[in-house]
Design a protein around this nucleic acid. Sequence first.
DNA 1: TATTGTTATACTCTATAACTATA
DNA 2: TATAGTTATAGAGTATAACAATA
Lengths: 160, 160
Amino acid sequence: MKKTMRSTRGPRPGSTARVEGIDYGNLPVHFGYALKRAQIAAFEAFARATAGRPITPPRYTALVILEANPGISQTVLGEVLGTARSGAMMLTNWLVARGLAERRHRPDDARAWGLYLTRHGKAIVGRLKRSVWQHDQHFGARLGPAERRELLRLLGKLAP
Amino acid sequence: MKKTMRSTRGPRPGSTARVEGIDYGNLPVHFGYALKRAQIAAFEAFARATAGRPITPPRYTALVILEANPGISQTVLGEVLGTARSGAMMLTNWLVARGLAERRHRPDDARAWGLYLTRHGKAIVGRLKRSVWQHDQHFGARLGPAERRELLRLLGKLAP
DNA sequence: TATTGTTATACTCTATAACTATA
DNA sequence: TATAGTTATAGAGTATAACAATA
């Protein structure tokens, strides 16, 4: 999350800029490639929204899910994020270590934790949501209103 | 790249399936989130196309770029991939170690390498391209022809 | 037996920074 | 001075496998 001067020229790492004089073959007409590039561009908007904070997309998603689904278990959180349980655990560890979330014992099942945002976590996620939403909308403004609706509809058909 | 039985229930890691009973808030109407989900779905098609081979998207892109741009330098390859030079170097090391690419000295600049596919690399990338293209088209077939064109157009506006 | 959380481990991707050889 | 490549290091994400406690 440090801001430093770059030591070399050219597009900065993570950039989606095309390089002059390079033959990209038919990569640009692959859905996977085009989606990946658009997703990288969207991530740049996310990075601006969370600049200076160690918040990454999975961490942001976890915070939003925890806010809307208090008491959720780590296993279910992992399913929502599409990751293995071990990943959900490390993510939870990170949130707990920073005082954003807490584990509470469940009366109904001694194996599982109930996950909750702390007061601090709720405050943080509230601010984050506003900023991420604004930057995401600004990113989408490269399209017109009808185009935005159509894009979300088409993406929804690809990933139901 | 090993195929084994999973030890737990639920959607497998990497899945985009929605979890029943979970409140996703307004995540689904974020462009970044929707793009990420669609990109994960597209990656699943890529993974099927390369099943059993240790080929990842960056490695595949590098192979295609090297085939179409023989003699390219590592620095330019890094710019095309949108990564730092060190990443392009490790990627090149991997390709070279597997006999897919080779470094040749340049007569015009003793600092830079010229990167080339080997005969073996050319054969591999030829087969890979067919398989990846077929699986990508099959993935895109969830949309109609007009929808496919429109999606690529909209994605092109988001990541020019 | 099955599930939850945990621990251990590994691999990929990506980045920064410092170094060298050359331009 | 600037650039190409290299090396070292680090963090994040993700995966599998095996284990203990609990259901």
